[in-house]
Amino acid sequence: MFNRLFRLSSYTAALLVLVILAGIFGVLYYYARDAIHDFGFWHFITTSTWEVGEDDEGGVFGGLIPILGTLFSTGIAMLFAVPIAMGIAVFLTEIATEKLKAPVGIAIELLAAIPSIIYGMWGLFYFGPMLQRLFGGQSNSLLTAGLVLGIMVIPFMAAISRDAINTTPAVLKESAYAMGATRFEVVKDVIFPYAKRGIIGSMVLSLGRALGETMAVAFVIGGVFRFPHSLTQPTISIPVLLANNFAEAGDLELSAMFYMALILFGISFITITIAKFFFLKDQK
């Protein structure tokens, strides 16, 4: 009796994962239906105005700018983070001496645990102003947001990649060295192919984090509804739009906010699913 009950409750808990995910889609859609009805899909994602009507009634809402802001800031983040994180992972596994490996490795792991809001504050007060001095434009900009996001995911990506690389059997590496391979050739031909799953996995997870990140970006992207004509101009991303304007939104605007959340969730869901399907198929 207890046996059956336990099985049933654990099954229910597992099913809950599905229920929550479906629930997120359902609830977001339910609240977004007015905006979906008024603006459609294609029109919504290609419209760049976000204007509340007279007396907070109605208005014209389009998601183009925050969608682009999200995609661009994530793109910049990944372009910046991937090479550096791979460098750190290779450094930590194949270059650093034993004495350096442990402290640097632990530092990286701890940095991966720091709440994202800290990265945002640092970007606001220190990194953004520095970028402004270097490249002109504004302190809070698409570039600042992308780079802060990148810096935020670097330790995370590096730590997972390092763990994946460390699973490569020593004897496999040795047998490549024993054929006269250089260190780089061993990394390229043996370690990366062997640890491919874990390394790509680290990138996919980081991509997911960057796409949905709010706090690291909210401080530094500027939060203005404007298309950035250069990297050093401010703009807005979907999470930041939600963080800044959700609580004060009127009826139709709130519906448009839910629509934005639904689109963000869709983007993240599709990206992760595609990445899992192509790169991370169950090896079993």
Binding site: V171, E174, S175, A178, M179, G180, A181, D189, K196
Partner: peptide
């Protein structure tokens, strides 16, 4: 590198590369 091309090695466990 030259040395290892002249002196080859076989290990305890088979070590096929992932290719």
């Amino acid at each position: 590198i030259r040395l290892r091309q002249r002196v080859g090695m076989i290990f305890q466990k088979p070590t096929p590369f992932p290719m």
